[in-house]
Amino acid sequence: MTLNCVVLDDYQDAALHSADWSGIESRAAVRVLHEHIADRDELVEALADCEIVVAMRERTAFDAPLLARLPRLRLLVTTGMRNASIDVAAANAAGVTVCGTAGSSTSTGELTFALILGLARQLTVENRSLREGGPWQSTLGRDLSGSTLGLLGLGRIGGQVARLGAAFGMDVLAWSQNLTEARAAEAGTRLAASKEELFAASEFVSIHLVLSDRTRGLVGEEQLRAMRPDAYLVNTSRAPIVDQAALLRALTEGWIAGAGLDVFETEPLPAGDPLRTLPNVLATPHLGYVSERNYRGFYSEVVADIAAFLDGAPIRVLSAG
C-alpha cells in the first residue's frame, strides 16, 4: 500500500533536490507545496488524503484543532528536534507519531554575525544609496574591535557567536537566568552581573534563548530604554522574546540605533509592516537555518524518518514533554 506524503512550505523548491528520496518512492507518493497555506480550511483540504506530512520548522502550526481535522495523518516529521508550533501531546493522542531531524550547528550563528556586521557598517543605508544613485558614502561605520557584545543566552548558538565576537576583538558579556561564571569563562566571555548590566554596557545585544513561558517578553521597554542610543539589538532566536510594540517604539523614537532581525511574530511578515521599511532595521526573512548544508541534513533525515516509520521502527521520536 502506497501512502500519501506532503512536504509543506518548500519556498525554495529545495526538498526533493536536497536528499535522495528513491528509497521510499515505492511506499510513499510524495508531493511538495511551495507556497505557505495560511487558511485553515485550505490547509485541511490540501492534507486530507495524507498519512505523512513534513513540516519545515515552525512555518505551519499543528495544534489540537487542526490535528483533529486530519484523521488520516499518522506521521508528522519536523525539521529540527524542537518545534514549538506542534502540539506533540495532541498529536500522540490522535495516534500521530512526531519525529524530528538534526541540522547544522553553525548557520544561525553565522547569520547573526552577518547582521552584526551589516549594522556596524550601515550596509542597508549604503547599499540603498548606491543602488538609487544617492550620495557616495553617507555614513560612518563602527569598528567591532574594542566594542562590547552582549549575549542574552550562551548555549550552542550563543557560544558560537561569542567565539566570533572574540575573533573580531570584541569584549563579550553574557547573561541568562542560569548562567554561571564558570560556564561564561569556559565560553571565553564575562558574566554580566545582571540582565540590566548586559543591556546598559553593550553596543550590540544578541538574543540566543529558547522561547518559553520564562523567556516570552523577557526584553521589554525597561531593557530597551537601558540600552545606549548608539547600540543595536539583534534577534535570530524568536520574536516573542522581545516585546514587539516596545521594539517598534525604540526604533522609531531613537532609544536605540537600530536592530538586526531574522524572526517576526507573523511570518511571512505582512507587506505593510513597518519593520520592512524602517531605515535603521536590517531584516532578513528567517534565514538563520536556511543553508544548503542544513537543508541536505534536514531532508536526508526526513527521508530516514519516513523509512523507519514505514518499517515499523520510528526514530528521532519527539516527546510531549
Rank of each mutant, 00 (worst) to 15 (best):
C50I: 09
C50G: 09
E51N: 08
V53S: 04
V54K: 00
A55C: 11
M56W: 11
M56V: 14
M56D: 02
E58W: 01
E58Q: 05
R59S: 07
R59C: 08
T60S: 14
A61K: 09
F62R: 07
F62N: 01
D63I: 05
A64F: 01
A64H: 02
A64T: 09
P65N: 04
L66F: 14
R69D: 13
R69V: 10
R72E: 12
L73R: 04
R74M: 09
R74G: 10
L75T: 05
L75I: 08
L76K: 00
T78R: 02
M81T: 13
R82D: 13
N83A: 10
N83G: 03
A84D: 12
A84V: 13
S85C: 12
S85A: 15
D87C: 01
D87E: 03
V88S: 06
A89S: 13
A90G: 11
A91K: 00
N92A: 15
A93Y: 07
A93Q: 14
A93S: 08
G95H: 05
G95I: 06
T97C: 15
T97L: 08
C99L: 10
G100T: 07
G100N: 05
T101W: 00
T101H: 04
G103P: 00
S104I: 03
S104D: 13
T106N: 11
T108L: 06
T108G: 01
G109T: 04
E110C: 12
E110H: 12
F113W: 15
A114Y: 13
I116A: 12
G118P: 13
G118Y: 07
L119G: 00
A120I: 10
A120K: 08
R121V: 06
L123H: 10
T124Y: 08
N127V: 14
R128I: 10
L130C: 12
E132S: 14
